[in-house]
Simulated assay, not measured.
Amino acid sequence: MVQLKIERLTKTFGTVRAVDNIDLTVEEGEFLTLLGPSGCGKSTTLGAIAGLDRPDGGRITLGDHVFFDGASATFVPPEGRDIGLVFQSYALWPHMTVRKNLEFPLSLRKVPAAERNRRIEEVLDLVEMGDYADRYPFALSGGQQQRVALARTLVYRPRLLLLDEPLSNLDAKLRERARLWLRDIQSRISVTTVYVTHDQTEALALSDRIAVMSGGRIVQLASPAAIYHAPASPFVADFIGSANIFSGEILHVEQGTTRLQLDGGGTLVTPSPPPEGTSGKVMIAVRPEKILFARDAARAGTENVFEVDIEARSFLGARHMVLARLGAVALRIECEWEPGTQVASIHIPAEACVLFDAPAPSGKAAAVEEAA
């Protein structure tokens, strides 16, 4: 099995460590997304895989092919890596037709004419652009140009496909459609794919696994469902989708139930076990769509029912976004039904709560560090 393997990868720009000792394995045929905010190191990691940036240290291999090894000073240039790379800008040759754009990389590889024609027809059918073979890029829409850019990469059959925010130039509707056919194409040809984006929806829709990055490190690596429902930190919880994050203190734990005193007032019951080694202070994350307005608070039971003040409302089409306040805690609530009053009851389901150990106050952290 051909794996992409990254070991102890580091890359520094001046005093900034853009990639900080990353370890990552991508299985053959897997669609893995590097996801994170600007400056987190995802594009630098992709550039190192592609050979566009030379890392400071570590090792990158694809199967038995060593792309980079800092220990032996091995560095294979991009053209020697047998990879396909699609950028945010499609970089199509404007003076060449679609067919000529696809033919160019095959000519460089000295593929015979008959085989070139066969591959071009095959890949144009794959991206549903066969009827546009004789058009020039300026006569194509953004979505069509994006398909041609992908086809030009696939036509020479790379062992590894690297995609750097390829959908970011498309409008919202086109991006939604493009996600569907891109995932379908990748699964049909089973090419190992590393995808870079800051768009959480894209990552959730496309990926087999997601590597969430922050500060040059991978802070969580898991399936989309696992990252969404079981985030490893408050950062991941808030970056993937959105989350209400507030603080509290553990009152007691018994029979698989944790009872918390919220800093904003009131008590919250959750089946989530407290984080291992916690001092008693915790952070609680709850997705906005999990919070319910209780038309009849009694129907929600007596646990986790709170009275909130509604501060703002937004109509989103199929749903509403309501900003509410529970004591000192600001909450975002995404709902199908909203109350017409300024004061309402909400229910926070116990199973919707994810607990994290609260970070130590800066003064305490400094004291501990000084003592060490």
Rank of each mutant, 00 (worst) to 15 (best):
318 A>E: 14
16 V>E: 05
338 E>T: 13
159 R>Y: 01
337 W>F: 13
142 G>F: 07
53 D>T: 12
235 F>A: 00
68 F>V: 05
364 K>Q: 15
198 H>R: 06
139 A>D: 13
196 V>S: 01
86 V>P: 06
35 L>M: 09
342 Q>P: 00
1 M>N: 11
37 P>T: 06
359 P>D: 06
40 C>W: 04
293 F>T: 04
78 P>Q: 12
289 E>C: 04
42 K>M: 08
4 L>H: 08
209 R>S: 09
305 V>Q: 02
329 V>M: 10
59 R>N: 12
163 L>V: 06
152 R>W: 10
302 T>L: 14
363 G>Y: 11
139 A>N: 14
301 G>W: 10
361 P>K: 05
186 Q>N: 13
126 L>M: 11
17 R>K: 15
304 N>I: 09
68 F>N: 04
18 A>W: 06
256 G>F: 09
5 K>V: 15
371 A>S: 14
262 L>V: 03
75 F>S: 11
282 V>K: 03
321 M>N: 13
121 E>D: 15
136 Y>E: 11
307 E>I: 12
175 R>H: 07
265 G>C: 09
279 S>M: 09
181 W>S: 09
2 V>P: 13
122 E>Y: 10
305 V>E: 01
351 E>F: 04
4 L>Y: 10
3 Q>A: 14
210 I>P: 07
152 R>H: 10
95 H>P: 03
29 G>S: 12
316 L>P: 08
371 A>T: 12
126 L>V: 03
82 D>T: 04
169 N>Q: 09
43 S>T: 15
274 P>M: 08
317 G>S: 02
309 D>M: 11
82 D>S: 11
263 D>C: 04
106 L>V: 04
204 L>C: 07
316 L>H: 11
189 I>F: 07
286 V>Y: 08
256 G>T: 06
299 R>M: 13
166 P>F: 11
254 E>S: 14
189 I>H: 05
329 V>W: 06
111 V>L: 07
107 S>M: 14
75 F>R: 04
